[in-house]
Amino acid sequence: MMIEVANLQKAFGSNQVLRDISFEVAQGDVIAILGASGSGKSTLLRSLIHLETVDGGSIAIEGQDLVRDGVYAGREQIRRLTARMGMVFQAYNLFPNMTVKKNLTLPFILTGRGSRAQAQDRCLELLGKVGLLDKLNDFPASLSGGQQQRVAIARALMLNPDIMLFDEPTSALDPQITGEVLNTMKDLASDHMTMLVVTHELGFARNVANKVIFMHQGIIEEAGTAEAVFTQPQSPVTEAFLRL
C-alpha cells in the first residue's frame, strides 16, 4: 500500500477534528476527499505531510512509519517520507519574490535533487506540461489565479513526488477558470499519479477520482468507489451532501 492510515486522532484544543480515521491508498489511486467545512478533511491531508501533528494513530508510507500509535519517527525519516509527497494549497503559496522559473528550480537545487542545468530542463518540461512556458520569467503577481495554481502544481512535480496532495486547489478560483486547473489534475491522474484531493468539485470527484472518502464531523462517514458513493450513498448524511 502506498499510504496506510489507522485510527488517526487530532484535536485543536477541545475541538476533536479527527476522531478515528483509517483508510488505505493504493499506487495510482485518485481519491477525492469530500465533506462540509470543518469536517476535518484538510486537517487529514495536512497530517499526511506533517503540516499538522496528530495526537494518536498511525500513518505509514509504503510500509514505513511516519507516525505509529501517536509516536513520530525520527527527523530524518520524517523528512525522507514527506519528501515523497507534493502538496498544492488553496492559496497557491508561490514565492512572490521569485519568478516562475525560480519558484520551480530553487527547491530542486536547494534540496540537492540535481544540477542547475537539470533543474532548468525539468522546469521547462513541466511548465510545458501545464501550458505556461511563456510565463517562465514572470512573477506570480502578474499571473491569474488559475495560472498560479498550475505553476504551483508544476513546482510540486519538480521534486518528482510519488504522491500528490491537493488541498481545495480550486476553491480560491473563479468558477470560469477552475477548469484549467482541474484539467491539469486530470492529466496528472491519467499519468497514474497517486493523488489525494480535498475538494468541493463534485464533478471532478465523480469523473476523475476512482475512490471517494466522505468526511463528517471528524470521521469517515462513507468511503468507496466514486461510482458507488455517487449513485448509491449508504449514509443519509452523504446523500444529503451530494444532493446539494
Binding site: 503540516l51 514565492f95 512572490p96 536547494l110 534540496t111
Partner: peptide, 27 residues
C-alpha cells in the same frame, strides 16, 4: 509575511535556514 509561505517551504523540503534567507527575509 504570510505564514503559509513557511508551509510551502516545508513541503518543498527547504531547511529552516533556507526558508528564512530565500523566502521569508526578502519578503
Amino acid at each position: 509575511v504570510n505564514r503559509s509561505q513557511f508551509e510551502a517551504c516545508q513541503v518543498l523540503g527547504l531547511s529552516h535556514w533556507q526558508a528564512q534567507t530565500r523566502v521569508i527575509f526578502p519578503q
